[in-house]
């Protein structure tokens, strides 16, 4: 290595990077260090992964449940979607969404206007942003308090039901405490603070927050692809709960909603959590497909740009792989903890 003229050591982290990044969540410019560049990449990877996981789960649940629908047409639609998605490379999805969809959108002047506040065009998606994000502190606190109160109430409700047999309206309590009150506060906060709404000035949109086309394409690719796999997990989980369970619940006098919440979902979750964990880890790893369309995630900015600039392959590769391993480990530890909590307790 010395012969090849390659420097070693981690000093390069504190040197100026000289690389500009078009999309960042934290303050950064080319005059910042390579370490800051790494942070920008990590933040982008985490952002697209978390959003991808959340929306893929939602879409996957819908498709998975639709596949089990008694309605022939609905289940046919869902089956077609799953079989289509699972047998095509993710890279093709990324290319399709980027070159086939986002890049083919109209220019900013004739962008697709969604409710007058979201604007979709070939430069990406412009979304409004509150001028003072601090206004949302109160709803956030309310959400945390409401969630804690809900957990306590549920515990108390379970105790009371065990003692007196009187059921406690858990769903209504959750709706009020976790969704209703903080939601209302958020609406109030949103109305009290000023919003920076994107507006067309000249050839592009100003104000708000612009999600670059690469982000939009990668996000949609991850969501549509992963949802196909999650749908199969959801379907398998629901099918794993034997029919006798729902019948027994009905004969005990549980209502359909209670049956679903107390009998079916807990047992289905037990089957679903391990494969879901590996799907979430896949989303994290697959966010690196952004490198193929130059979305500035960690592989693209660090293993690509920074490595070209500094030439310190071994250090950079070790850092990037290390980060993936650590974040992946964190996700699987959390999911294992969750799995242990809901696992069948056998005595």
């Amino acid at each position: 290595m010395v012969k090849a003229g390659i420097a070693s050591g981690f000093d390069f982290l504190w040197r100026t990077s000289g690389i500009d990044v078009p999309f960042r969540l934290i303050e950064y410019g080319p005059q910042n260090t390579n370490f800051d560049l790494l942070l920008v990449g990590v933040a982008n990877t985490v952002l697209v992964s978390i959003l991808g996981m959340v929306f893929a789960t939602l879409l996957g649940f819908v498709v998975g449940v639709a596949r089990l629908s008694k309605n022939w047409l609905v289940s046919f639609f869902a089956t077609t979607y799953v079989e289509f998605v699972r047998n095509i490379p993710l890279l093709l999805f990324v290319f399709f969404w980027y070159f086939g969809v986002v890049r083919a959108l109209p220019p900013p002047r004739s962008s697709i206007d969604i409710g007058g506040i979201f604007f979709l065009n070939n430069r990406g998606l412009s979304i409004p942003l509150p001028v003072e994000p601090g206004a949302f502190a109160i709803p956030l606190v309310l959400f945390a308090v409401g969630f804690a109160a809900f957990l306590a109430l549920r515990l108390w409700g379970a105790k009371r039901q065990a003692a007196t047999g009187q059921p406690f309206p858990v769903v209504a309590a959750a709706l009020v405490l976790v969704v209703g009150v903080p939601g209302l506060a958020a609406v109030v906060a949103g109305m009290s603070t000023a919003w920076s709404v994107p507006a067309l000035t000249g050839f592009n949109f100003r104000g708000g927050f612009a999600l670059i086309p690469e982000f939009v394409a990668l996000f949609f690719a991850l969501v549509t692809y992963t949802a196909g796999f999650i749908a199969e997990i959801v379907r398998g989980g629901i099918l794993a709960v034997s029919k006798g369970q729902t019948e027994a619940a009905a004969s005990l006098g549980l209502k359909p909603g209670q049956t679903l919440r107390l009998i079916v979902v807990p047992q289905a979750l037990r089957v679903m959590v391990p494969p879901m964990t590996s799907q979430y880890l896949n989303v994290l790893k697959n966010s690196s497909f952004g490198a193929a369309i130059a979305f500035p995630e960690i592989v693209s900015v660090f293993m690509g740009s920074a490595l070209n600039n500094t030439g310190q392959a071994i250090e950079i590769i070790a850092i990037v792989l290390g980060i993936y391993l650590v974040v992946g480990l964190a996700v699987s530890l959390f999911m294992n903890w969750y799995n242990a909590r809901i696992a069948l307790v056998t005595r």
Partner: peptide, 21 residues
């Protein structure tokens, strides 16, 4: 666990840069 934990795209980069070394 190592090879399962890292993205394949990074592994291909890694192989293309480290194997010659």
């Amino acid at each position: 666990e190592f090879w399962r934990g890292v993205p394949i795209i990074a592994v291909i980069f890694l192989a293309s840069m480290l194997l010659p070394l």
